[in-house]
Design a binder for these strands. Structure first.
Length: 877
RNA sequence: GCCGGGUUGGCGGAAUCGGCAGACGCGAUGGUCUCAAACACCAUUGUCCGCAAGGACGUGUGGGUUCAAGUCCCACACCCGGCACCA
């Protein structure tokens, strides 16, 4: 590695603790320029800034103060149900800042450090502004990692899970995140998953949770089904194994009912959520406009409907294809082709998703021995089954238009099927299928003609005709599939359904929740294709809640994304044992004002949370439809251009960085690195430089020699102007989330104040105190320990976190003189100091009088002078 | 292929109201301190020409609008992310 491994830490962690501050520091320096040896000459001396000691000191103080506890302690149980559960003034302005809660695998890492450093800037800013801020903490503690660890260690997943939570909680405490610790929840606690089960039952009652047999993604490694969202490039998102298909009965949530609303409601998020997240969600929902067209098929009474985005090409539909693994294929198949179809199906099922998606693969399929009729031309179209048609998109059947669709073209080549062009390709077109726009051709019958029309017009006309003749209609189709929520694993909330031989599916009555997990461990949890819960016979056997007869529990558990799809509703009343969330509290706090988390949840979690919010809204539980008003996706922390990983060996250990530079320097480095959304490469950054700055700020606070409360109005005006301008800028920068620039401005203020102390108005000037106090408060958003330490050195009692956001005096923002740029032909030739109120004529005269301007002009004739007082004069010759 | 975002010194990044490009920091170079080094501190630091004064060039490329363009418009190239046999 680089210099980070060498003894940089000497300056910070060698010295003894420094309880007494800088009593013996020199206050007078010999000459402004000769500041050599200041403090740094003896880093272990009495004026050293001992990062670790400062951390220990303030942690204890803060624990006692609990500055960010918002929910009234007696009320956090929800037992009293008071109208104003958090004890804050009912009229107080509230803010809810939510971080995507952590998954408890191991200790916190660099990624956590970045996410929470950024989120905390906002939370702490809001507190400084005087808002009542809910900044909760909890853990997403169900999931596969815990289960796999438990198998390895032959214990219950809870042991690993809660041990890791304890570790992370302590790390968060040291990292000084402004949490209200009374909110703390764990999704694996029965008191939480009881309500996850409640959510399931709500959706079930509304018809939004249902069971069906379906061809589902199966991970042979984890021995469980996967949601479409958990299949990445044909592989299991978790273990990387190639995913195969299985037909199983599974539980689904009906997200597709909400496809259009999930799309429409994004309008309100525009500009508040990152553009790329909205794009990803749009892509995922995958709305397309087109038409449903009915095709009569031999031997079938009902026509078969297809979805197409190109109804304008229906005249060119020369054959018909159904998904090989859809029930429809078997249904349409002529008896003599059954054998061929079965053989083909076998071949398709053997193929993994990865092979199926492989590029350049030849089209395959099998003729089903029947024909369909083109509804406009009346032409006979052979019907095929093929795997390039997907069973769960559209209707699982397509009209094939080889001239205008590349896939259909390829299929037609393999099977020698006719190609009829219905869109005139441009002259010299040498490609295969032509998918561009162009005049429609070969598309006329006695009843309807599309010839000569462009694409959109042709679509309109043909849809109109289809509708008039009862052969189809305009239609919208979505790529989005229903959310598969059941998992054949142990460490999740059991699905609260009982299967009764006489009553069928029976929901577990609400007052019998939670359905607790049986206590299993080790080998009991080994994946074996059915849920481990099935082996726990005492647990499975139950009497039917409806008829009382013998029945069995559903043995699947829910996807962890169900846990996280509603946790933001729980935080205002995390320990309420009478309801999942208190409607009054939810009204007070939600929707979340600012959500912060990684881009890895751009689709899954955010889409599910949005869906659940809308569903609960429709069921009358919520009065809003979008859970997260604003979203920040922090970038990734990488190292030397690549994501950190064990195999690459480029991991940077958070604990080590904190040990070496301290929490504040690590946080500052994260925030200063660049815009929150950008990836940050740790190799490009300098935590040592961050620490250097923090020490400079700290020294500044120690230099201040005016008394607490000294009137700044008597102080140095030049410095005051810098301070007040910085405060004004800082407010705007935090609001617009340009935290890296906020840090830069704080640095500038420190530099200016240092200069004022050393070679300007001196340390006793009250303006220096004003500046140092402003630095402390600004810094409290990013580096809370140093800020607190400065605050104390400035003579104040803790905590600086609640000191209040500084205000600026507009009078001090007025400039006495501004720099006017004088350019000739757009090139800067002179700069003038002029009063901001200067008139255009006067400014023009001044500009033309400048020697350098005169020299540049020479004999040239001035044709035009553009004067924009007080900043710009441009002379055109 | 479709959708979105981007391209600014050696590096991370500022400047988004069209008005001094390069704030702030890192690194580098020189200096102070030191026996020496490290640390710390001070100074310089876009490139090129020039002893200097000063000048030329400069925000992916090519055009355009404008007194004035990193910023607005058109075309293109490249990079990153998402979706993708989705009809």
């Amino acid at each position: 590695m680089n210099e980070q491994t060498t003894g940089l830490a000497g300056a910070v962690d060698d010295g003894p603790p420094d309880p007494s501050g800088d009593v013996r520091r020199r206050t007078q320096r010999a000459g402004g320029a000769g500041g050599a040896g200041r403090d740094g000459g003896d880093p272990t001396g009495p004026s050293a800034y001992d990062v670790q000691a400062v951390q220990e000191k303030w942690l204890k103080v803060w624990d006692g103060l609990d500055p960010f506890g918002v929910l009234r302690k007696g009320d956090a149980t929800g037992a009293t149900g008071s109208a104003d559960g958090d004890g804050a003034d009912a009229t107080a302005e509230r803010r809810y800042l939510l971080d995507m809660f952590p998954y408890p695998s191991g200790d916190l890492h660099m990624g956590h450090a970045e996410a929470w450093a950024l989120a905390d800037v906002i939370a702490r800013y809001w507190v400084q502004r005087g808002y009542v801020v809910l900044h909760p903490v909890g853990w997403d503690s169900f999931g596969l990692n815990a289960e796999n660890a438990a198998i390895k260690r032959n214990e219950n997943p809870a042991i690993w899970t809660y041990a890791n939570i304890a570790t992370q909680a302590e790390s968060f405490r040291r990292y000084a995140v402004s949490f209200d610790w009374s909110t703390r929840l764990h999704t694996s606690d029965p008191e939480y998953y009881r309500w996850t089960q409640w959510l399931f039952l709500q959706l079930y009652a509304a018809g939004l949770a249902y069971r069906k047999g379906a061809s589902v993604n199966w991970c042979p490694q984890d021995q469980t089904v996967l949601a479409n969202e958990q299949v990445v490039g044909g592989r299991c998102e978790r273990c990387g194994a190639e995913v195969t298909k299985r037909t199983l009965t599974q539980w689904f949530f009906k997200v597709t009912d909400y496809a259009q609303r999930l799309l429409d409601d994004m309008a309100a998020l525009e500009g508040r959520w990152p553009a790329r997240i909205l794009t990803m969600q749009r892509n995922w929902i995958g709305r397309s406009e087109g038409a449903h067209i009915d095709f009569a098929v031999e031997g079938r009474a009902e026509p078969v409907t297809v979805f197409t985005t190109r109804p304008d090409t229906v005249f060119g539909a020369t054959f018909f294809v159904v998904a090989a693994d859809a029930a429809l294929a078997e249904e349409l198949c002529a008896p003599e082709q059954r054998g061929a179809l079965a053989e083909y199906l076998e071949q398709v099922r053997r193929a993994t998703e990865v092979e199926r998606l492989a590029e350049g693969r030849d089209k395959t399929g099998v003729f089903l021995g029947v024909h369909a009729t083109n509804p406009v031309t009346g032409a006979s179209m052979p019907v095929y089954a093929a795997d390039y048609v997907l069973p769960d998109y559209g209707t699982g059947a397509i009209m094939a238009v080889p001239a205008e669709d590349q896939r259909d073209w390829e299929f037609a080549q393999v099977f020698g099927l006719p190609v009829v062009r219905t869109v005139q390709p441009p002259a010299g077109w040498a490609g295969e299928a032509y998918t561009g726009d162009g005049p429609t051709i070969n598309s006329a019958t006695d009843e309807v003609s599309l010839d000569g029309l462009g694409r959109e017009a042709a679509k309109r006309v043909v849809i109109e005709w289809l509708e008039a003749n009862g052969l189809g209609q305009g239609a919208i189709n979505f790529r989005l599939r229903d959310w598969l929520v059941s998992r054949q694993r142990y460490w999740g909330p059991p699905i609260p359904i009982v299967h009764c031989p006489s009553c069928g599916e029976v929901p577990v009555p609400e007052d019998q929740l939670p359905v607790r997990l049986p206590d299993l461990k080790g080998a009991d949890l080994l994946p074996k294709g059915v849920s481990p819960l099935a082996a726990s016979e005492d647990w499975v056997r139950v009497s039917c809640p409806r008829c009382g007869g013998p029945a069995e529990r559903d043995t699947d558990t829910m996807d962890t994304f169900v846990d996280s799809s509603w946790y933001y509703l729980r935080y205002p009343t995390p320990h309420d044992d009478t309801q999942p969330f208190d409607p009054a509290a939810v009204r007070r706090w939600l929707p979340v004002d600012q959500y912060v988390g990684g881009v890895e949840h751009a689709i899954l979690h955010l889409l599910y949370a949005r869906f659940v919010t809308k569903a609960l809204h429709d069921l009358g539980h919520l009065d809003f439809v979008e859970p997260f008003t604003a979203l920040i996706n922090q970038g990734e922390v990488i190292n030397e251009g690549k994501g950190m990983s064990k195999t690459l060996g480029n991991g940077v250990d958070l604990g080590e960085q904190i040990e070496r530079y301290g929490v504040d320097a690590v946080r500052l480095t994260m925030v200063f690195a660049g815009p929150p959304e950008d990836d940050i490469d740790w190799a490009d950054l300098s935590p040592a430089g961050s620490l250097r700055f923090l020490q400079r700020a700290w020294r500044l606070a120690g230099d201040v020699s005016s008394p607490v409360g000294a009137d700044p109005r008597a102080g140095d005006e030049a410095l005051r102007k810098v301070t007040h301008r910085t405060v004004r800028d800082a407010t705007e920068l935090v609001e617009s989330k340009r935290f890296n620039v906020l840090v830069a401005k704080a640095m500038e203020l420190v530099n200016a104040t240092r200069k004022a102390v050393d070679s300007g108005c001196g340390a006793a000037d009250p303006a220096v105190r004003e500046a140092a106090e402003a630095v402390a408060v600004l810094l409290s958003l990013v580096s809370p320990y140093t800020a607190e330490e400065m605050w104390e050195r400035l003579g104040h009692a803790p905590t600086v976190a609640k000191a209040g956001w500084p205000t600026f005096d507009p009078a001090l923002l007025v400039e006495e003189s501004v720099t006017c740029v004088v350019s000739v032909q757009g090139k800067v030739r002179a700069k003038l100091q002029v009063p901001p109120t200067i008139g255009a004529d006067e400014l023009q005269d001044l500009a033309l009088a400048e020697p350098n301007v005169q020299r540049t002009l020479g004999d040239a004739v001035v044709r035009k002078v553009v004067v924009r007082p007080p900043r710009v004069v441009n002379i055109v010759i």
